[in-house]
């Protein structure tokens, strides 16, 4: 019975919220119990954004993640400083090393450094850095499949953005490869 409680964080515009929503949607497609909870408030307008996603084989109780994250996916420095602490011992921390130059402090968790922006640029669009991170995350946890994420994209993006699916798919793959 797997339960993944992941905090995704970065600054506004990095696609944090949609990364979380795609994961949630993919979980739903795979008939898992899911919840997505955003931070909301002044931080929405610029600043740091984060969301908590729970994907589980069991009913989701509280949608809040408090010091019991099984993983944190952090895309900027303030997020690392805040959410490294919330990961349980033995959990995963995925750090966007393109924008975060320091190393994580914890030694009781698994830390992965993914140069997400650099990889995104290599495949042609800086904006898919979030999908590189997501690709790494699902490769490590296997909580949902890449195919489910792609299916979720098709539903979430809407018909006008279908041409972006291929690029995002590539980003997922490259992210996965980085942590294999």
């Amino acid at each position: 019975m797997a339960t993944e409680k992941v905090i995704m964080a970065g600054f506004g515009g990095q696609g944090i919220m949609s990364m979380g929503q795609l994961l949630t949607y993919a979980g739903m497609i795979q008939d898992k119990q899911v919840s997505w909870l955003p931070s909301y408030g002044p931080e929405m307008r610029g600043g740091t954004a984060n969301c908590s996603v729970i994907v589980s084989d069991n009913l989701v109780g509280s949608p809040i993640i408090t010091d019991d994250a099984t993983a944190s996916v952090v895309m900027n420095l303030p997020s690392l400083l805040k959410f490294e602490q919330q990961v349980i011992a033995g959990g995963n921390l995925i750090v966007n090393s393109s924008l975060i130059e320091i190393k994580a402090k914890r030694e009781d968790i698994n830390v992965y450094y993914v140069p997400a922006n650099q990889i995104a640029k290599e495949i042609g669009n800086d904006k898919v850095a979030n999908m590189v991170m997501l690709g790494a995350y699902i490769e490590l946890t296997k909580i949902v499949s890449q195919d489910s994420i792609v299916e979720a994209m098709k539903k979430v993006f809407g018909p006008s953005k279908q041409h972006l699916v291929e690029l995002n798919k590539e980003a997922l793959k490259r992210g996965a490869k980085k942590v294999q």
Binding site: Q21, T24, M28, V34, S35, W36, L37, P38, Y40, V60, P63, I64
Partner: peptide, 10 residues
């Protein structure tokens, strides 16, 4: 409450 309003579930 704010959480019910803001969270996403199926």
């Amino acid at each position: 409450d704010g959480m019910i309003g803001q969270m996403m579930e199926p």
